[in-house]
Design a protein around this nucleic acid. Structure first.
Length: 280
DNA sequence: ATGACGGCTATCAGCCGA
């Protein structure tokens, strides 16, 4: 099974690019972020013509997440348990939820498409929201894996965190000045790894960015950020056979500012694949 | 070449993004 996660920065603005990529790259499941539309506005037809069904979660023109799959999707969830909400000027615990998480079970794999809040600024209420969101997500994963340690589960999407200095090539992103690189954000990212998830792409693609700002010639100068990830549980990570960052998708006409991150899985559940047959 | 920001809407200005 081949999956990809992609912050598409409006699915309506570049539906042909997105569907074209799915067909070219032979993707089974695409986990999208920033669809920037409501479900009734989603360009379903183009995906269906290519053989994909779509589950979309969007509340307005901001955020929005969706999953397109040519394999059956089961048990679709909108938002994860304990996910906090946010509304400007609204610090209460019961702020309305945004459309930042959607999940489906595909071939027994629990896949999440996540759009972690940006944070905006270190003193902005959105930054505290970002940290609350990450902590609630960590707790959800902890509970899910405590209930079923063998569950193949992946958190995929735009984490809006550059975990290491090597992930920062954009000179406008500076520790102590901007979000994405603060110790608290990096600790929140590390907490997923400490909780048993693995970044399944980094070992296979050690360097490279997943985002380049539209401004200031960031892409031609290769001044990007690595902020899009696939974090897998043990069972998921053990099934990973390959990974790539689809850098070419940043080129050409009307690209998203993010590129797809792709992962190949072997779900045959045959852990002895690479061992010799003894009584064969 | 990979090129100087681009989506969205209570639109032609302001918000959001990283």
């Amino acid at each position: 099974m081949r999956i990809a996660t992609w912050n598409v920065n409006s699915v309506r603005a570049r539906v042909d690019r997105v569907v074209g990529f799915l067909e070219r790259a032979d993707v089974d499941v695409l986990l999208m972020q920033e669809i920037k539309c409501k479900p009734m506005q989603f360009p379903y037809e183009a995906f269906e013509r290519a053989g994909y069904t779509v589950e979309a979660h969007g509340l307005n023109q901001w955020n929005g997440v969706a999953i397109a799959s040519r394999l059956p999707m089961e048990d679709v969830e909108y938002s994860f348990p304990g996910m906090p909400g946010f509304q400007k000027g609204y610090e209460g615990d019961d702020a309305p939820l945004e459309a930042r998480a959607i999940s489906a079970l595909v071939e027994g794999v629990r896949l999440w498409s996540l759009y972690v809040p940006n944070g905006r600024g270190l003193e902005d209420p959105h930054y505290a929201y970002k940290l609350r969101f990450l902590e609630a997500l960590r707790r959800y994963v902890e509970d899910a894996l405590a209930a079923d340690p063998q569950l193949p589960l992946a958190l995929t999407g735009d984490f809006n965190i550059a975990p290491t200095p090597e992930d920062v090539g954009d000179p406008s992103i500076v520790e102590g000045v901007t979000t994405h690189v603060s110790p608290a954000e990096r600790a929140a990212f590390q907490a997923f790894l400490d909780g048993g998830l693995r970044d399944v792409v980094r070992p296979l693609v050690p360097s490279g960015y997943t985002f380049w700002d539209y401004k200031q010639l960031r892409f031609p100068r290769d001044e990007g950020l690595r902020i899009d990830f696939v974090l897998g549980s043990r069972a998921f990570a053990d099934a990973v056979e390959g990974a790539s960052i689809e850098r070419d998708e940043r080129k050409g006409e009307h690209p998203s500012d993010h590129v797809p991150v792709m992962v190949d899985l072997d779900l045959s559940d045959d852990e002895d694949d690479d061992l010799p047959m003894i009584f064969g």
